[in-house]
Amino acid sequence: MSAPALIDAPAADGPRRWHRFSVLERIGRSTFYLLALLAIVWSFRTIEIIPEFLVDAPTQTADLFARMWPIDWKWYPKVVHPALVETLHIATLGTILAIAMAVPTALLVARNITGSIVLNNIGRFILVATRSVHAMVWALFFVAVFGPGALAGMLAIAVHSVGFTGKFLAEAIEEARPGPIEALRAAGAPPLSILIKGYWPQVKPAFLSIAVFRWDINVRESAVLGLVGGGGIGMALDSAMSNLYWDQVGLVLLVIFGVVVVTETLTTWVRSRII
């Protein structure tokens, strides 16, 4: 049989050869790899890393953990527990407030609710802007405005979450089937009734799922806001660390670990029941 035209045969009677990529593809890939390598080398050479520190890092880190043991449980009831409760309240209230702000924004973004492209894009800009700035940075803002404490932390959580919740809510609203809505409209229902009786039943599972998922994320986030003055367990961590009470630091870390594992298990379970 003769060699098919697809394969480059060096000579009519020579063995057929085969390469994985065409010349152009190979050049493209090699260029990409070279650029990636250059970026890595450049980062390594210019970044201010003291080699001795890098070599020392494992020992130092191990030493840090060694100092946390044994953990100081006595400290839990007096300081850690109230801080933990405060963190949970910050996360929950923040999520509620975020949803209260995200619902109108999502309605603004959803094209099947708001017809105007200008309004859609204004809504979308709000979502992107709130999401791009980290909760920690929002907390810095709100601490500067309202002073340190739970209020700043709660607002930081709320504002940062608007982007996330609003984005997914808007998607859920846009995915709603038009059938029931058209039926309601044909029956002459006012706009608010269409929202409540037409969209809400369809969006409800997604809405609850998004809320629960965001709450889970917010519990993690709110645990660190205290480091910049946003209240909650992060403040306990901050004070323990500035006092160099490592056994207390260990306790706080363990509590955070436990809470995160519990909320994740809880939310996974709740979400599996909703969907």
Partner: peptide, 26 residues
């Protein structure tokens, strides 16, 4: 690296001939 020995590649093409698929090799 897909650096198969030339003999193997030649044999693979022969087998594709044998099953009637050499036009689809790539």
């Amino acid at each position: 690296l897909r650096r198969f020995p030339p003999a193997d590649i030649a044999r693979a093409f022969d087998l594709l001939d044998a099953v009637g698929l050499s036009a689809h090799a790539t």
